[in-house]
Amino acid sequence: MSGAILVQQPGNSVVTDLGRFRGPRFGLPVNGALDQYSARAANILAGNLDNHPLVEITALDFRMTANTDLLIAVTGAPLTLTVGGRPCSQWEPVSVRAGESVSIRGIHRGLRAYLAVHGSLEAETLLGSAAPDTVVGFGLQLREGTTLVTRRSVTPVRQPYFDLPLFRLGLERPSMGSDLSVDVTDGPDVAEFGESGELLFTSEYAVSGRSNHIGLRLGGELPERTSSGEVLSRGVPVGAVEVPSREELLVLHRGRGVTAGYPVLAVVTSTGLDVLAQARPGDKVRFRKTTVAEATAAHRRSRAQLETLRESVNTVFGLLGIGCRPQWQDLPVAACS
C-alpha cells in the first residue's frame, strides 16, 4: 500500500538524502542533507535506511497531511512538533493517523529540521541521489500542494493511556545555540598564510546572512595569504576554509563547486560541518584546531551512537511488527506498552 502526503505549507523545504557521492567526479557537488547526523537519525528513528529520501526543512514553518497512517520522525534544530494538534516529541518515532495535520513550527537555536517517513519517500534520482542540485536544475523543492508518495503505511502505535509519548529511545541530541565551536584540521595550503593563519583560532567570526548550502560567509579578522601567484583550479573538499576576499571568510559546505582556485587554509571536520549546518545568521563561530586522527575518532563515536539507536529501533519495531506487515496486524497495541 502506498500513501499520499499533501504539503500544505512548504516553508523552505526539499526532498533530499545523504548526497550525490558520485557527483564530484563529474563536476557536480555532493549536496544532500547539510546536518548529516540529524538526517541519519531521522531515518533510523523512522526505521529507514540512512540514505533514504527525507524532507529537509530550513528555518520556516512546515505543515502536511497524509491520506494514510504514517510513522514519522523529526530531528534537527529545536522546534514545536504537533500532530493533529497534540504536541509530540522530536527525536522519537511518532505515529500519525490518516487525515491528521503534521505541523513543524518555530525552528530555533538552529536552522534545519529533518522529517523522515517510515517507508521513505518516492523521489527521482540523478547519479543515484535525490539531493537537489540548484545549478543543474535537479531536485524536488516542495510547494503548496506538492504530493509526496510513501510506500508504507503504519497502523497507529499509541499509548492507550492519556496518549503519552510511546517511545523513549534517548538519542543524544546535538547541542545547538548561538555560540558555535567548530573543529578544523590544517588545510593543505596553510603555509601560504604564514603566521596570519593563527588568526583563525584566536578570532571570533559572525555568520553572514549571505550563507547557504554552498558555503557560509563569516565576518571577522581575516588571515591573509602571503603568496600571490595564480593558483591552478583544484578539487576542493567540503569544509574547505578559504579567504577569497578582504571582507569575509568562506567555508564551503555540501553544495560547493568541486573545483576552485583559492588556497585552502583549513578544513572543517565531518562533525564540525553538522554544527555549521545549523548556524543561523548572526551566530558566533570559534574554530578549534584538531587533527585528522582526532576528527575521525570523534566522527566514529558519533556514528556509534547512531548504530546503538538503530539496534534499539530494530528491537522495538520488531516487537511492534513495524516493517514486517504480516505479523503487525495481529499484534494488539497493548503489547507495546
Binding site: 557521492f21 558520485r22 564530484p24 567526479r25 555532493v30 591552478l232 583550479s233 583544484r234 578539487g235 576542493v236 573538499p237 568541486v258 573545483t259
Partner: peptide, 13 residues
C-alpha cells in the same frame, strides 16, 4: 567516494 582530478592534482574523497 571518488576522485576529482584537475591539472596537477587529484582530490580523493
Amino acid at each position: 567516494h571518488g576522485a576529482v582530478p584537475t591539472y596537477d592534482s587529484v582530490l580523493v574523497e
